[in-house]
Every structure is written in structure tokens, then in C-alpha cells.
Design a protein around this nucleic acid. Structure first.
Lengths: 185, 185
DNA sequence: ACCTGAACACCGTTCAAGT
DNA sequence: ACCTGAACACCGTTCAAGT
């Protein structure tokens, strides 16, 4: 009873091992070759190309995997911390990941970069919205705080993180202060 | 009487032709190969590498050439236009050039990108300072306008220019309005 | 001094042959 | 259905041989 969507176990395992090898290889060197990654994953180059039809597709998959991981952090953070602190920790994680993966971006032409943004924008906005809503509920974040605005500012953060000294924690603190409700009068 | 710094005429010509071929090739396709460029310039690959020891060095030279060209535009613009209009035209040119060369940036690792910035920052700040000073002299630009601030805002401009519709002219108009002196009271 | 172009090691990608 | 790995066209870069 073979069904559509049925995948052989070895194929699924190979896919996972290639993705993992790619993540490690890219972390060490953004310009790691597909053949190197295939070898590191213990598969032939043909197998890599069966799962990811171009180098770009592989890079994109690594990005999406990373974004999904960070988005999934939200519930745990909200369980363990107050909303503003959860938002601070989550944003720190996001900036660190963007910084680590930044070298990868250079391997992508503008079209591919647009694809990444499009694929990841929704989930990231969703995560920020959840975090902001938690703060709005308990009054620690002002009611008109906007997720898209916050993400825009986050873009400035990772540029600040790329300098000689990492000024991003200070900037992040500043932004978070700006989200606090105005003092009652 | 051979002197240090003496260069054979054919060498100088080759250098210029390679640079020109590289500029054209990169404009069409940021990932044009060095061998293609050498062929386009009518020289052997070895000649290209004699003048530019790595691909990166060639890309850097193209950038610097372009920035120098734009910086050199300033006197002409100030002769033909009022300071604020000169600044507007000059910035438009800079943003257009940055946009055209943006694909090139992707071919550079972060270290090389830092090198570009370092090499070009001084002259660009100089050009902006000249333009702002002209406006301060005739009272069309406020006295505390700062060249570094203006350049920072320009960075945001070429990001705005990369979107589906080019919002940069509107943003530039806004920034220029901000440079006007405060109304007398 | 400088130029040429064959050559090198390696790249992303393909595909015939296997299981 | 999926995997292997030799092979292809091309990349950035080098270097012996020419002028």
C-alpha cells in the first residue's frame, strides 16, 4: 500500500543529515562547497542534489530551519520569563542567528534573498506579535506597539552588532524602554 | 632614465581596459568571471592577475573608480545649481550608483566590504561636507547639519530604493526638508 | 617589464549504473 | 525509489615561455 507522500526511511535520514552538515559547514565557512557538504554528510553529491536541486535551495532550507527553531522558542520563553524579558531574550537570539548566518546572505543573489525574506517574514512577525500581546495583556508594553515596527528596528540592531564592539544590547535596551507604556498622569 | 613609478604604456592601457571591461561586465552580471573579463578586455588571464592579484582586488578597484567619479561631480553641480538642488542631484547619483553596484557587494566577504567602506568613506564625507557648507554659506541649509548624519540617512535611502517601487526620491525630499534652517521667530 | 595562454585544483551540477 | 560516484563545463589562479 504505497501512498503519495510516502518517503523511504533512508531518504528522510539522508535529507536530515545533509541539512545538519550544511548548517555546520556554513557556520564555519559561508562559502563551503556542496561537494564538501555531501562528503561531510556521508552521501554522494547526486544524493544532495536529489534533495536540494541547487545550492541556493540548500541555503534557503538552512535559513528556514533556523528561523523555525527561533520562532518555536517563544512559548518556552513566555513560560519562564516576564513578557518584556522574554522579548529581550528572544530578540537577542534572533540577532545572534542573523549575525551567524550573515555570511550566507552574500552567497545569494537579490532574488534568492527576497525569497528568504518572504518565506520567513510571516512567522517572525507572528512570534513578535505573540510576545508583544503578552506584554500588552499585563500592561508592561504599551497598547499601540507594532510588530512590523519592532522588526524594522531589529534590522538596525544587527547592523549595530556587526561593528567592532557589539552595541546591540544597549540599543535593544533603548528600544524596549520605548515600548513601555507612557507614565500615568 | 628609468625611474621608480615608470610604467610601460601598454601596461597602463591594459590596466585601464581591464577596469573598463570589469565595470561593464559587473553592471550586466555581478558574478561575471575574471576569465570572461580578461577576454572582454582582450588580454590573457595572467595579465588581469598581474594588475589585480585577486578577484576581490578587481571588484574593489571598480568601486573606488565609481566613487571617485561621483565625488568629482561636486564642483560642476555647485556651479550649475543652488546648493540644496546640487545636494539633491548628487545624492540621487550616489544612490543610483550604489544600487547598480549592489550585486557586487554580494561577491565580497565582510572583510572586503569593510575595506571598501574604509577606502571610500573619507572622500564621500568630504563631498557631502562641501555641499552642506555651500548651503550653510547662503543660509539655505541649517548651520548644524552634519555630513555623517546625512550619509547614514543615505544608507536608508538605497534600501528604500530596492523595494518594488522606488520610494527614495520622496524620502530624499523629506531629508532635505529637514536640513532647511528653522523658520525665524 | 610585461604579456600570453596552457594548465591546475576545485566548483556546481548531471547522469548512467547500481540496489 | 533512491543512492553512488565518475564525469562535464567552468571557476579563480599560476607559471613557464615568449617579446
Amino acid at each position: 500500500m504505497t501512498r503519495v507522500g510516502m518517503v523511504r526511511a533512508d531518504a528522510r535520514e539522508n535529507r536530515e543529515r545533509i541539512l545538519e552538515a550544511a548548517r555546520d559547514a556554513f557556520a564555519a565557512d559561508g562559502s563551503a562547497s556542496t561537494n564538501q557538504i555531501a562528503q561531510r554528510a556521508g552521501v554522494g553529491p547526486g544524493t544532495l542534489y536529489r534533495h536540494f536541486p541547487t545550492r541556493e535551495a540548500l541555503v534557503l532550507a538552512v535559513y528556514q530551519h533556523e528561523v523555525a527553531r527561533i520562532v518555536d522558542l517563544v512559548p518556552q520563553l513566555l513560560r519562564d520569563h516576564a513578557p518584556v524579558e522574554a522579548l529581550r531574550l528572544w530578540t537577542t537570539e534572533l540577532v545572534a542567528a542573523m549575525r551567524a548566518k550573515h555570511g550566507l546572505g552574500h552567497a545569494l543573489d537579490p532574488a534568492a534573498q527576497a525569497a528568504v525574506t518572504e518565506q520567513t517574514y510571516g512567522p517572525v512577525i507572528g512570534a513578535i506579535t505573540t510576545l508583544l500581546d503578552a506584554g500588552k495583556s499585563d500592561g508592561s508594553i504599551r497598547a499601540d506597539a507594532d510588530a512590523a515596527d519592532f522588526l524594522q528596528l531589529t534590522g538596525a540592531l544587527w547592523r549595530a552588532a556587526s561593528g567592532p564592539e557589539d552595541r546591540s544590547p544597549r540599543l535593544l535596551a533603548l528600544v524596549l524602554d520605548g515600548l513601555r507604556p507612557p507614565p500615568a498622569r
